[in-house]
Structures are given as structure tokens and as C-alpha cells.
Design a protein around this nucleic acid. Structure first.
Lengths: 182, 182
DNA sequence: GTGTGCATGTAAGGAGTTACATGATTGC
DNA sequence: GCAATCATGTAACTCCTTACATGCACAC
């Protein structure tokens, strides 16, 4: 029994929330964990085969009309593997790759007006994410689990904090650096 | 002239802060941008060759004793490429991969006490990052550029916010879910 | 009958990490 | 003399994304 891969974890977790096809798993990921844990078809389908071969999930043929369709369910071994991962004390991956911060780090090469423009762009990026997360609220409340909703609330406050932090930096910069007319 | 790769951007930016070897670039990255933009030798050395072939940087042989050593400097074309990237309006990469949030998302599978334990683990993770960032403050102030220091301040407040947010979640959970003795 | 959504998959390629190999220098 | 640090590089590997291929079903 090999260790659960990154994608394997999301799949087991998603299947615990309900019986699903690969396609549905991807759809749910896209409107829920995508902002902190993405997955693509190129990972999901091969991983479903592997998890089934390891006995952690079972697929059932459920054709919809004439269309082939395989929906998966957790096995007891799969439930156990999920719980083992959820309760393990291993280091938790935290990876951030933020080009906005990287540019800001190098912003000494720019004019104050250009820095202000950049800060505005970063703030707007997070405001756009915020808008998308807010649209997901209804869907998250509909799921019959509390934590997806609580996680979304975290995401909303997280991006709001960032947007406000950049707004403050922008204000401080423009109030001190704007050349006065007159 | 191919587009600047992700690693190429850091390298140009770092060289603008001073004449450096590949080894030094890696050292600086490790104590400055690593928390939002990492780079390894396996990327840096090949990328230095490519940037030199493209005329964006020039390497000078500067042996230290009998030890071979090549330090690089930006060319005017390299400065221009850096500024072009810094001022471009392209979408800014923002990628987050957070196993702590992923586990929390699936925490409906856990007992309240296990959720509390997980929240504690996440909070401690960010407290550890915070401690490391604070140790970098002296070094960042020493650099003769303002923005590396301002970026570090952002990072400190960012991880502090996350740690506090998780502490709050922990408190709310334990105050409502702890079985009362007596 | 046409576009959109459901559904499954693969191939190619890019980006990045880890581990290894090599060797000189410096400080204790 | 030995360990840590400086310094350069490569090979193998993993992970992930993108693009493509295929085909059914349903709504308009």
C-alpha cells in the first residue's frame, strides 16, 4: 500500500461527501477547494484507477442512458486511509507562489506612480477572487457538511484581508508621494 | 527573445539588487522570497546560461583563490526586460496549495477534539513561519532597498493574521464543544 | 441539427525538486 | 585534519497542466 498522493487525498475526501464520477469530482473541486487545492482530469482519472487497484474505492457502472459512466464509493479501507491522513501529524504542505508579492519585492526599480499602479492591480486581483468566492456561498451551504462552508468563510476573510492590506499600502503611497499642484 | 520564465524573473530582480553568483542568488532567495517564490539550483544554473545567451545578463569570471566563480550583472537589455515585466499588466500568478485548509475542508469526518487538534497544528505551523520571518528582519533592513523590507512586513502580518484566525476557530470550537465536567 | 454539458481518457511537455558528483576554501 | 561553507552543475524523477480525441444526451 503506497502512500496517498496529493490528488488521492482530495479524491477520498470528495468521495466521503458522496458517491461520484471522476467528472463530478472535478466539478466539485472547481467550485470548492480549487483556490487552495486544484486537480485536473490528467490527475484524477489515473488516480481513480490506482485507488481502486489499492482497494480504497470501488467503481460501479451506472450508465446514464447509453452513456458509459463509473461512479465511485469509498471502501472501509478507503475510509480508514482518509481518517489516517486527516489525523496524521505529518507536516502540512503550505506552498504559496505569488507574483504580485514578487513584483512588489523588486519595486525599488519602479517610480512611485508605477508602484501604486501595481498595488492597485494586486488589490483588484483579490477583489475578483472575493467576488467569485461569494458566489460560491449558496452552493457551499447546500452541501450537507459544515466544514466546506466554514472553509469558504475562511477564504473570503483571507482574500478580504489581503485586498485591504494592499489598499492601505496604496493609500499610504499616494498620500505621501503625490506631487502637489498649485 | 523568448518570454521570461518564472525563475528568470527572480534572477533578473536579484541581479538588479547587486552583482551575484548563482550560489549567492540561491542564498538570497532562501532568506527573502522563499516564502512566496522559491528557486532551486536545478533551475537557477541552467537559467543563468539561458539569460546570458539571450543577452540579458553577463557573467564575469571572478575566481576566489583557486576556486572558480562566475558572478553575473544585468545588461541594459536585462534591465529593460526586468522593467517590462514589472510594469506589464499580465495576470499575476497566485497559487496556493494548503494541506491545512484541505484537511479542514474534510473535517466533518473527525471528532470535535480531533478538529481542535488540527486547528492547533495549523496555528503552530504559521507561528513557526512567523518566528522565522522575524529572524529575517535584521537582514532585510540591511539590504539597501526598501521593498524587500516592506514585503517582509507584509509576510509577517499575513502569517500573524492566519495564526490568529485559526486560534479563534480553535477557541470557538473548544468553548462550545468541550463536555462539561461536574 | 447544433451547441452545450456529461463523461472518460491519454500524450506531450513544462516546471520544479531531490539527490548526487565534484572540488576548493575557511575556521576551529 | 575535519567540518562547514562556497561554488557549479546534472540526471532522474514527480507532479501537474494543456491540449486533444472521442462520443452520447439533451435542450432549443
Amino acid at each position: 500500500m503506497t502512500d496517498l498522493t496529493a490528488t488521492g487525498r482530495v479524491i477520498l475526501g470528495m468521495l466521503r461527501l458522496g458517491h461520484r464520477t471522476g467528472y463530478e469530482i472535478k466539478s466539485v473541486v472547481d467550485v470548492s477547494t480549487r483556490h487552495f487545492w486544484a486537480a485536473s482530469y490528467g490527475q484524477i482519472y489515473p488516480e481513480l484507477k490506482r485507488l481502486e487497484a489499492d482497494g480504497l474505492i470501488v467503481g460501479e457502472e451506472e450508465p446514464a442512458g447509453g452513456r458509459a459512466r463509473t461512479a465511485y464509493t469509498l471502501t472501509p479501507a478507503g475510509e480508514a486511509a482518509l481518517t489516517a491522513w486527516l489525523t496524521s501529524a505529518d507536516d502540512l504542505t503550505f506552498e504559496l507562489r505569488d507574483e504580485g508579492l514578487l513584483k512588489y519585492f523588486f519595486a525599488d526599480a519602479l517610480e512611485p506612480a508605477q508602484v501604486a499602479e501595481h498595488l492597485r492591480a494586486v488589490r483588484e486581483r483579490h477583489e475578483r477572487v472575493l467576488a467569485r468566492l461569494r458566489q460560491m456561498e449558496a452552493g457551499a451551504e447546500a452541501l450537507d457538511a459544515r466544514h466546506p462552508y466554514l472553509t469558504l468563510q475562511f477564504g473570503i476573510e483571507f482574500h478580504r484581508w489581503i485586498a485591504e492590506r494592499f489598499a492601505r499600502m496604496e493609500q499610504e503611497l499616494t498620500s505621501s508621494a503625490t506631487p502637489r499642484r498649485k
